[in-house]
Design a protein around this nucleic acid. Structure first.
Lengths: 224, 224
DNA sequence: ACAAAAGTGTTGACTTTACACCCATGG
DNA sequence: CCATGGGTGTAAAGTCAACACTTTTGT
């Protein structure tokens, strides 16, 4: 590779995170409003350009912090978006990440150096986004639906443990589907993603529910 | 993003393909030997730096052509590798692709402008590779094993159709596992990846086998 | 004792596994 | 007619889907 060749110049990396939450049965994603060109005034997913001194995931986390104030998130790389013209100023290849957190546990910055607003949008009410972010978000939602059944990605939504009824509502919100309570329990437990704690929910006028927690490590299943 | 900021300079994209084949029950991957620094004389996966004028997949295909002579391959993006120091000269983020072809159908160039050798290596006999390619290859093998049961990736290995006994040998080679013949058929057909042609194998002293072909489009299955 | 939500078990349908014999072809 | 490899069915075990009643708590 000849570093001076023009074909290799002016290329950069975007790190873009679709950060989800679930509020009262509604799956939402965090969007920010741009304060600069290009796409000034447009809503976009959180993200920005990677520094050449940081790893991909660290860059995505830094951008989240800078543009929304959100910290302590676990995210997972899911796909790269590299069409030549996806960004207008120069050639940018975007690495997409997903994560999910409890929006009640974070303080969202409404304005920063580079953003004029930030908010959680229900995933079925997404405005036209800047860049190719509608496409990235679509893929992110698909990936989220896959990951919740085969990884512990939901751990960051329930860092203090979760009850099966809560989990069921979450799955129903994300997969947009209803489940039978008994069968959901059996399925969930057989997925081997959660483990019993010996605690119960704080009660509120009804039978307290058992608390589970997501496992630290998930072993992968046979595929054939 | 301030384009002049040093933090955004000197970043490039690698497009790296793990191209597999299966020969007599052995899964192999294509490696090339480097003719230049860095890693001069080392074996690596096929790939190189992306031009700022081409899409990711096009770049990976171009690199395959340039360094091995291989054309008409279908490849699939699977993961990004972005550790700050994965490449010694400058910051390079690698986008990994996998593909699988029939090695008998291609003419492999043994030497090119940038390579001093090229060959198919059994995946359990891989030498230490340049860059982080051992890690990339490991992930690529995992992904291959997932893809053969949920996508039509094997189509490019069998462009003219395939019989169930051939397919079974291929799955056994890639998954490193034996299957019962009757159960393999049932499973394979229920996966809905292949469809009957009304042809049969050209025979060679025994009962001719029915020919199947991989479907163009695979619909995705329910996940919960 | 009532309201509200949590927890639990069984049956029938379906899927998966284990296993052995017949069939078509070329020589 | 024999050797080679291809094709098929069935019974037992396991998994999945549908369904209703009992338990615990606070008031």
């Amino acid at each position: 590779m000849d570093v001076k060749n023009k074909l290799y110049k002016n290329t950069g990396i975007h790190v873009i995170t679709a950060l989800f939450t679930v509020e009262q049965g509604v799956t939402k994603v965090l969007l920010i409003k741009r304060k600069n060109e290009p796409f000034l005034g447009d809503w976009v997913l959180t993200g920005g350009a990677l520094y050449n001194t940081e790893d991909l995931e660290d860059g995505a986390i830094r951008e989240l912090k800078e543009k929304t104030g959100i910290e302590n998130v676990e995210i997972k790389q899911f796909k790269v978006f590299g069409k030549v013209n996806r960004s207008p100023m120069m050639r940018m290849v975007a690495v997409g990440f997903i994560g999910i957190i409890d929006s009640k546990r974070v303080h969202l910055l409404r304005e920063t150096r580079n953003t004029s607003n930030a908010d959680w949008f229900p995933i079925n009410k997404i405005p036209p986004l800047g860049y190719d972010h509608n496409e990235i978000l679509e893929e992110a939602i698909k990936e989220l639906r896959v990951q919740i059944v085969k990884s512990n990605i939901l751990k960051s939504l329930f860092p203090d443990g979760v009850t099966l009824p809560e989990l069921q509502k979450t799955y129903e919100a994300i997969l947009n589907k209803k489940f039978d309570r008994r069968n959901f329990r059996k399925k969930m437990l057989s997925l081997d993603l959660i483990e019993d704690t010996n605690l119960t929910d704080r009660f509120e006028g009804n039978k307290p529910a058992k608390l589970y927690r997501f496992k630290k490590q998930i072993e992968n299943k046979e595929i054939f």
